[in-house]
């Protein structure tokens, strides 16, 4: 746990299981840091005094009831909103606006329906002035990375919900972000697609070393793909619970859903949320 975290209760630390592959991450300088961040909508405080930091390559799962401020946190990291108090820092620099170093995967994908899959994926390169051949090359590479090879020339409306989210992932990855922000990206998908994509996220993290902030409603999802879980139960006073996930590497392993450590963590969080 980082020094900046202010858990409301003693953290439930990982059990006697092999160390998390990212155990060393917290000692490296953090990629993302919140320092006593507060946010108010029109004078109404949503959160106050929130501090935490996230290490390189770490997946931080944000879990909490609807309306507690998860999306607001993500929007501040993305640069869509500015903290009304405190500072949010990425890579040592205060966040002042959106940028390609922080990619966002939206719940409804928010793809550009007028562009092909390849054009969607290569959008950041187009904005940066890359040539046609280079854009195609990266689009094909990223499509392969997320399992969309052969769909480069399809339009988003020709794809299933799961495939649309794969495009959303690929277009963020093409920008080579330091941090990926995912706001309940799989909550509208069927269970099977959701689980496959959760494994995909872990695989992508292993391959790219990207730091990920993952907002979810689902305890299972948080416990399966998070390295740490923040249970945001009282952001009004900046308090949250921290749980370390202790699952054996390699992480993208569906068997982990049956691992005793996974089952115990799920139960602990469930009981905690229930009162």
């Amino acid at each position: 746990m980082t020094a900046a975290a202010r858990p409301s209760k003693p953290a439930v630390v990982g059990e006697a299981a092999p160390p998390s592959p990212k155990a060393g991450a917290e000692r490296a300088p953090p990629v993302l840091k919140f320092e006593q961040v507060g946010f108010s909508y029109d004078g109404r405080a949503i959160m106050r005094d929130v501090s935490f930091s996230v290490g390189p390559g770490e997946i931080l799962a944000l879990l909490g009831p609807s309306g507690c401020g998860k999306t607001t946190i993500l929007n501040m990291v993305a640069g869509f909103l500015r903290p009304t108090e405190g500072v949010a820092v990425v890579d040592g620099r205060e966040i002042v606006g959106p940028g390609p170093d922080r990619g966002v995967v939206f719940q409804a994908a928010a793809l550009f329906d007028w562009m092909t899959v390849a054009e969607n994926i290569a959008f950041s390169l187009r904005c940066a002035g890359a040539g046609k051949a280079r854009r195609r090359e990266v689009a094909e590479e990223m499509a392969a990375l997320v399992g969309l090879s052969g769909f480069e020339d399809a339009f988003p409306y020709q794809l299933s919900g799961g495939m649309r989210q794969r495009v959303g992932l690929a277009r963020v990855l093409a920008a080579g972000p330091k941090v990926m922000l995912m706001d309940e990206p799989f909550s509208a998908l069927d269970v099977q697609t959701r689980e496959t994509l959760q494994e995909e996220v872990l695989r992508i993290r292993d391959r790219t070393g990207c730091t990920i902030l993952f907002v979810t409603h689902s305890i299972d999802e948080a416990a399966f793909l998070g390295d740490r879980i923040f249970l945001l139960n009282d952001l009004q006073s900046g308090a949250y619970d921290v749980y370390d996930v202790a699952l054996p590497a390699p992480r993208p392993n569906p068997e982990n859903r049956l691992h005793p450590s996974f089952l115990r963590l799920r139960e602990t969080i469930y009981r905690r949320m229930r009162h």
């Binding site: 640069g79 869509f80 922080r102 928010a110 904005c127």
Partner: peptide, 13 residues
């Protein structure tokens, strides 16, 4: 949509 505008901005547009 707000999301599509934000998506574009966060990809460097």
């Amino acid at each position: 949509s707000l999301d599509s505008l934000r998506a574009a901005q966060s990809m460097g547009a």
